[in-house]
Design a protein around this nucleic acid. Structure first.
Lengths: 152, 152
DNA sequence: TATTGTTATACTCTATAACTATA
DNA sequence: TATAGTTATAGAGTATAACAATA
């Protein structure tokens, strides 16, 4: 194949662009979270727990975060060790455990959410408000088709 | 904070959407590459080597792929072990080594590029051609600001 | 003094499989 | 028989630091 044709094959590849962009965001997020003892992954789990006052099952966490259930166990263990969340038995399903944010977890979340959003806004600064909306919508629709949940 | 307000905080977060979308693409790409003995990362390096007939320095590979130079060493080692690329001394800089695709590397690349592009197209099937273009452009502009190269 | 490639190390992330207790 | 959570393990990805050879 013609070299000139392929000169930009990589940088035109949506998959490559996505992984680059994702990495940039994760690094920026981890950087601002470091001083709070958090990283992007545990943060997103904490955020979900804080958003659901009644708690979230680990299964729901795995589904929404697209993580393997065993990864959720580790993350919840970690957050529980820091007393940011706790496991409570479900009253309707004795197999399930509900992950609930503690007072400390909610306080940290309230403190840290604007910081993370600020870091994201900085990364998106070159896009207009409309473009940011479009990007969000396109990514959401991309997701709709994806393996809704379980990684494989 | 109001639970209802935060109910979708996570799924509205561009950083989260990017990492989810990126993961979906990488998994799909790895899946179709598996039977060729490749994964997304080595594939992208091979693609760069194939796109530059004169070879690419490892420094350039690290910069374009946003990898640490030490990661590039491992990847080149791996591809070289499969005889898909080889290291050649640079004639202008005796420190540098040029990574050049072998005949086998070019052949595999030619075979595998359409497969990877097909997998990407399948993931993008829910977006119109125009929307795919917009997505690509927005991601590219997002990248422009990012740490052009070196990860940190 | 700075840069290219290299080695080494530690930690995070991803992917599987098997197991338990419930449903 | 299937599902929620758990444990264990291995491999891939990421992040650093230090070093030799060369610029």
């Amino acid at each position: 194949m013609d070299p000139a044709t392929n000169a930009h094959a990589l940088t035109d590849d949506v998959g490559f662009l996505l992984s680059r962009a994702s990495a940039v965001f994760v690094r920026a997020t981890n950087a601002v979270l470091a001083s709070y003892g958090l990283r992007a992954r545990p943060y997103s789990l904490l955020l979900m727990a804080c958003s659901a006052p009644a708690g979230v099952s680990q299964r729901d966490l795995a589904e929404t975060l697209a993580l393997d259930p065993s990864q959720v166990v580790s993350l919840v263990d970690e957050l529980a060790a820091s007393a940011l969340v706790e496991r409570r038995p479900s009253e309707t399903d004795r197999r399930a455990k509900l992950v609930v944010a503690t007072e400390a977890g909610r306080a940290l979340c309230a403190e840290v959410v604007p910081v993370v959003e600020g870091a994201a806004a900085a990364q998106l600064a070159d896009l207009s408000a409309t473009e940011q909306l479009i990007l969000r919508e396109l990514l959401t629709r991309l997701m709709a088709r994806g393996p809704g949940a379980s990684p494989q």
